[in-house]
Design a protein around this nucleic acid. Sequence first.
DNA 1: CGGATTTGACCTGCGC
DNA 2: GCGCAGGTCAAATCCG
Length: 485
Amino acid sequence: MTYHMEKGHNHNELTLLNSSHNIDPIIKEVDFFASNNHNNKKSDSSNDDNHHQKQQHDQHQHGSSTLLIDHHVNTGLYLTCASGGISRPTNSENHKTQMIKLENELLRVQEENHMLKIALDQINKSYNQLQVQLFISLQNQKPNQNVEENRMVSGQKMMDPQECTKLDAIDTLVSNDKTNQEVCGDSHALVDRSSSQSWASSSSKSPKIEEEAKTEEHVVADQLPFRKARVSVRARSEATTISDGCQWRKYGQKMAKGNPCPRAYYRCTMAVGCLVRKQVQRCAQDKTVLITTYEGNHNHPLPPVATAMANTTSAAASMLLSGSTHINESLTTSSGSYFSSMATLSASAPFPTITLDLTQNPNNNNNNNTMQQLHSRYYPTLPLQHAGSLGGSYLLGKPLFFSQKMVPNSSTMMPLVQLGQRNNSSVVETVSAAIASDPNFTAALAGAISSIIGRGGNSNNVISNNGNGGAVLPESQSCTTFSKN
DNA sequence: CGGATTTGACCTGCGC
DNA sequence: GCGCAGGTCAAATCCG
């Protein structure tokens, strides 16, 4: 506390505040200072002379600034305001003086706190800027060290440079001879390496890259609780794939066991050397549900919205990995976290997977609010149509089946909050669709959550919550799933 | 014609 | 070692 560390002074301040705002005698029940109340009780039972003597005694003991809580103070104020009452100018003067003093002190402290806040903000900004500069300079020092690695790392940097540099500034300073990837050696990079290794292992990579991958695997193996990290999104869509803002090239298709629908394999083609891949498959039980599984991190810039989302999903995934059994509480009370009751961490799957199941039809208001917050945060002033516009999938006015089905008046551009007030259920479904069709969200989610997975965690943890207090069983295959109802 | 998709072959890991 | 399933490659094909 920045007020007064001296006991007596603080005491006086509290007393004065109470006396000025609580004229009603009921304040007697607020026994801040038992000794005073005790004295007051004595005063009540005594005559005015004794009362005044006692007050004077107290003032003498605690100094001229000492005031009494009870009606003594009120009496003084009353007398001051009264026209013909018995005035006690000395006491009133003291009150006024003290009041002015304390008000001035309060103003001074408020000013000081304000200045400190400004200074703190400035320090934080400078800190972040320095970290970014540090990273940039370190990258410039090793421009040609490892093209593949640099691509991966730079991709992460562009995705969220501040976060990366924040996490790795210390590591960077400690070990200067690390590669750039290790300089940005947070979980993003680790997962990147993990993912790229896993993909490379089965691909026909050049011997050099393969060897490097094996070396990295050897180095990182002990640090990685998971060899692969995946982010799965379940979303309702009639399209063959959800629009996630990235460009993909299909490189294979397979019939998976236990599912009559084929599984399609896509590779990111937004940047040369991007190792991010995704699998798209319809749910066997509900063919309207599209399961999109991402693996790896992009090595190219993502839009700012994706970066912001990455922070949010990082927090969500971090809470999941923390082993908290109160996912709902954690995520909803944490600023910027919106995946309450829908995020599922599964280590029982072949690969550690965060599944975001938006196909769930949450009945509790918590989820509704969550989705409302999600949209209102990232599209605070825009109608829902904007949420899908970037990726070519539109919620309103465009033939996205769930949008026209769920939104009564598709021609009306309606802010989310209004929608939510009218029909919570539809809103959740609609916003889920908005998220799923958001071109930036998926990639951000994939990067953020998979990065958190790589950061560590109990591989035996399976944290599930479906919003109704029940468990969400992960897919047999790892999935990051956007679902649109 | 170039890029994207399809599809059968091939590779790899895992369980028996 | 063998078979199975997942994953990838690359030639063939399609399409704008």
